[in-house]
Amino acid sequence: MKRTVIAALTLFIAIAAIGCGAKKDDNLDIIGGADGPTSIFLASKSKEDKALSWLYEKGGINVIWGDKISSKDTHGGFHGDGSSLYSYQFTDSSMEPEMEESEYWKSFPISEEVSNLINNSIGDECAEAIPEISNGYYFFYDRHTEAADPYDESELWNRASINCTVALYDADEDILYIFMKDT
């Protein structure tokens, strides 16, 4: 009983702190519940590092050595809707042969679906910050729960919401842009 009261009180305080504008720490995870021990994990990876690791895992190309140029994140609110844009500079074009051979990375021009996602996101400061790219490769991953094939962008507009990630590699500038959209 005492554990249940303590767990409930801790949860109430955490919810109140978030609601009062407390700074959110994305490197802190609390795992546990009222019926068992609670553990607190501190992680050293930032959201940007997680984006590169995630892209490496899903896209199969070693992109984790890029130097961060900038990041924007408009996610927030109750459902976490918004978008993110991370950009990374690379020192050479050594990823291009791997992207050329990959089944998940496609050469430019980008598909109509991906183009519409980026170019028709009016008022989305992340999408608007992506420059015009004419030479490079792109990667698409549909994170929606109803996606039959997450690498297929053809179903992007057939649902009420969008949850996807697009990576755009500018081969002329050696810059990688990772754009995440959640509605």
Score class of each variant (00 low, 15 high):
residue 176 L to G: 07
residue 160 A to F: 10
residue 90 F to T: 04
residue 154 S to K: 06
residue 101 E to R: 15
residue 102 S to V: 01
residue 97 P to C: 02
residue 157 W to D: 07
residue 129 A to R: 06
residue 61 I to T: 09
residue 120 N to R: 11
residue 131 P to Y: 00
residue 38 T to F: 08
residue 106 K to I: 03
residue 100 E to R: 11
residue 137 Y to S: 05
residue 4 T to N: 13
residue 104 Y to I: 04
residue 50 K to E: 15
residue 137 Y to E: 01
residue 101 E to G: 10
residue 96 E to P: 01
residue 59 G to W: 02
residue 143 R to K: 12
residue 85 L to Q: 00
residue 177 Y to L: 09
residue 61 I to K: 02
residue 154 S to R: 01
residue 152 D to H: 04
residue 88 Y to L: 03
residue 21 G to Y: 04
residue 48 E to N: 12
residue 166 V to L: 06
residue 4 T to A: 14
residue 135 N to H: 01
residue 128 E to P: 04
residue 179 F to H: 01
residue 53 S to Y: 12
residue 92 D to S: 11
residue 36 G to R: 13
residue 131 P to V: 00
residue 93 S to T: 07
residue 74 T to R: 09
residue 128 E to S: 13
residue 182 D to I: 11
residue 171 A to P: 05
residue 120 N to S: 14
residue 134 S to K: 12
residue 12 F to S: 14
residue 96 E to C: 06
residue 11 L to W: 05
residue 141 Y to L: 09
residue 155 E to M: 10
residue 165 T to G: 10
residue 67 D to M: 13
residue 53 S to K: 14
residue 173 E to Y: 04
residue 143 R to Q: 10
residue 169 Y to W: 14
residue 150 P to G: 11
residue 30 I to E: 07
residue 22 A to K: 06
residue 178 I to W: 00
residue 91 T to M: 11
residue 47 K to P: 11
residue 134 S to I: 04
residue 88 Y to S: 00
residue 164 C to P: 04
residue 61 I to A: 08
residue 99 M to R: 02
residue 182 D to E: 13
residue 15 I to W: 01
residue 12 F to H: 12
residue 141 Y to Q: 05
residue 3 R to D: 14
residue 22 A to M: 13
residue 180 M to S: 10
residue 169 Y to E: 06
residue 52 L to I: 08
residue 59 G to L: 04
residue 35 D to I: 09
residue 128 E to R: 03
residue 57 E to L: 13
residue 126 C to Q: 09
residue 104 Y to K: 15
residue 73 D to W: 01
residue 160 A to V: 09
residue 27 N to Y: 01
residue 105 W to M: 06
residue 75 H to N: 10
residue 171 A to E: 07
residue 109 P to R: 03
residue 89 Q to I: 01
residue 50 K to N: 15
residue 172 D to F: 01
residue 77 G to K: 07
residue 86 Y to N: 14
residue 75 H to A: 06
residue 95 M to H: 00
residue 58 K to A: 13
residue 86 Y to A: 10
residue 19 G to M: 11
residue 21 G to A: 02
residue 79 H to W: 15
residue 152 D to L: 07
residue 68 K to C: 05
residue 10 T to V: 10
residue 141 Y to E: 04
residue 54 W to R: 09
residue 182 D to A: 14
residue 23 K to E: 15
residue 170 D to H: 08
residue 145 T to P: 05
residue 48 E to A: 15
residue 52 L to N: 04
residue 36 G to F: 06
residue 56 Y to F: 15
residue 35 D to V: 10
residue 139 F to L: 12
residue 26 D to F: 10
residue 131 P to G: 00
residue 91 T to A: 12
residue 84 S to D: 14
residue 45 K to G: 02
residue 29 D to M: 11
